[in-house]
Amino acid sequence: MDQKRPRRPDPKLLELLVCPLTKASLTYDRERNELVSTAAKLAFPIRDGIPIMLPSEARVLD
């Protein structure tokens, strides 16, 4: 497994995903490898190409 570059999720999957709290659309932050919900002010991590859509795993945005 390549540890240098995180695996990017499937673009078609990203089109289908919404914020689990607000149901608003998400944006992909390539630099941090996260899905960002500006409505909920949360960033959901992507691990091994799989979005982790649990609020308990999300990073709170400033």
Score class of each variant (00 low, 15 high):
I50Q: 01
A39D: 12
I50G: 01
D62H: 08
L21V: 15
D62Y: 14
T22Y: 00
R8E: 10
L17C: 12
T22M: 05
L14M: 14
V60W: 00
N33A: 06
R59P: 09
D48Y: 02
R59G: 08
I46S: 02
F44A: 03
R30P: 00
E34A: 05
I46C: 02
P45F: 06
L61I: 15
V60Q: 03
M53F: 02
M1F: 04
E15I: 03
D48H: 04
S56K: 08
G49D: 02
K12A: 13
P45A: 02
T38I: 10
T27C: 05
N33Q: 06
K12S: 13
L26H: 01
D2L: 06
M53G: 04
Y28M: 00
S37G: 02
R59Y: 07
R32A: 14
S37P: 03
L17F: 02
Y28N: 03
S56Y: 03
M1I: 12
D10G: 02
V18S: 13
T38V: 09
V18R: 07
R5C: 06
L21S: 11
R59N: 08
P55K: 01
L61V: 12
L42R: 06
R7L: 13
R7V: 15
S37A: 11
K4W: 15
R8K: 14
R59H: 14
P9A: 07
R30A: 14
E15V: 03
K12W: 09
V18H: 03
G49E: 01
K4P: 05
S56F: 11
Y28G: 03
Y28K: 04
M1N: 13
